[in-house]
Amino acid sequence: MLTGLEAAFFYLFAFIAVASAFMVISSRNPVHSVLFLILTFFNAAGLFMLTGAEFLAMILLVVYVGAVMVLFLFVVMMLDVDFAEMKQGAAQYAPIGASVGIILFFELVIVLGGYTFAPQLASTVAKHTPDLATRSNTAALGDILYTDYLYYFQISGLVLLVAMIGAIVLTLRHKEGVRRQSIAAQVGRTPATGMEIRKVKSGEGI
C-alpha cells in the first residue's frame, strides 16, 4: 500500500511519463521527440524505484538514456534526413498498423482483465518475490537470469549477435579502387612474395 508521499511521487512520475510519451509521437521535430523520449525513460526509472526495482531503474538510465537515446539523438542531429519525404505514402500502411494496434490492445485487455478477475493467476506464473531484507533486488534478478533462464539468456545473446552480423553484411558495400587490409594475405607472405629486387639505372627512378 502506497503512503501519501509515495502516492504523490507515483502520480507525478506517471503523469509526466504519459505526457512526454504523447509528445514523442506528436512533436514535428525529431530532435524534440528524442528529448521527450529521454524524459519518458527518466520518469519510468522513477516508477521502478518506487516499486523497489532499483536495478531495472539504473539499467534503464544507463543503457537506454545513456547510450541508445543519446546515440539516436546524435544520429538525428548529424544526418540530413528528409522526414517529410519518408512519411509520404504512410497512409497506405495505416490499415495494417491499425489492425496490429487493435490486436495488441485486446491482448492487453485480456491480460489486465485476467489479473483483475483472477488474481491467483499471478502466483502460478510468477516466481515468489524474496524478502528484500535478506535478498536484494539485483541478486534476486541475477538468480533468475543466470539459473532458471540461463539458456534463454544465452540464446537471446546469440540472436542479437546474429542480427548484428546480418546488419553488417547487408550494409557493407565494397568500392572499386579502395585499398583494403587482407589479414590472410599478410599472414601468408613469404620472402619470395614479400620482397622484390629491382635494378635501377643511375639517374632514374623506379
Score class of each variant (00 low, 15 high):
27 S>Y: 01
28 R>P: 10
29 N>E: 05
29 N>G: 09
29 N>A: 00
30 P>D: 01
30 P>C: 00
33 S>G: 10
33 S>H: 00
35 L>G: 02
36 F>P: 06
38 I>A: 09
39 L>W: 07
39 L>T: 07
40 T>H: 02
40 T>D: 02
40 T>P: 03
41 F>S: 12
42 F>T: 12
43 N>P: 00
44 A>H: 07
44 A>P: 13
46 G>M: 05
48 F>H: 06
48 F>E: 06
49 M>V: 06
50 L>I: 05
50 L>P: 00
50 L>A: 01
51 T>E: 13
51 T>Q: 12
53 A>M: 12
54 E>V: 13
56 L>V: 13
56 L>K: 14
59 I>M: 15
60 L>F: 01
60 L>N: 05
61 L>R: 03
62 V>G: 03
63 V>R: 13
63 V>N: 11
64 Y>A: 03
64 Y>S: 11
65 V>S: 07
66 G>N: 03
70 V>C: 09
72 F>S: 11
73 L>T: 02
74 F>L: 11
74 F>R: 14
75 V>K: 15
75 V>R: 08
76 V>M: 04
77 M>G: 07
78 M>S: 10
80 D>A: 13
82 D>I: 05
82 D>G: 00
83 F>R: 01
84 A>D: 07
85 E>L: 14
85 E>F: 02
87 K>E: 06
87 K>G: 08
88 Q>P: 00
89 G>S: 02
89 G>N: 03
89 G>W: 00
90 A>T: 15
92 Q>D: 10
94 A>V: 14
95 P>G: 04
95 P>C: 02
95 P>S: 05
97 G>D: 00
97 G>L: 15
98 A>S: 10
101 G>T: 10
101 G>Y: 04
103 I>G: 15
104 L>V: 14
107 E>V: 12
108 L>T: 08
110 I>N: 12
110 I>R: 12
115 Y>M: 13
116 T>C: 11
118 A>Y: 13
118 A>P: 04
120 Q>R: 14
120 Q>E: 14
121 L>V: 01
122 A>H: 10
123 S>C: 03
123 S>K: 09
123 S>G: 10
125 V>W: 15
126 A>C: 07
126 A>Q: 10
126 A>H: 09
127 K>R: 11
129 T>R: 13
130 P>Q: 08
130 P>K: 05
132 L>S: 12
132 L>F: 13
133 A>S: 12
133 A>F: 09
134 T>Y: 06
136 S>C: 07
137 N>R: 11
138 T>I: 15
139 A>W: 07
140 A>F: 03
147 T>K: 02
149 Y>I: 06
150 L>Q: 14
150 L>G: 01
151 Y>V: 15
152 Y>N: 07
154 Q>A: 14
155 I>M: 14
156 S>G: 06
156 S>P: 01
158 L>S: 10
158 L>C: 02
158 L>G: 13
159 V>W: 06
159 V>R: 11
160 L>P: 04
160 L>F: 05
161 L>D: 01
161 L>E: 05
162 V>E: 09
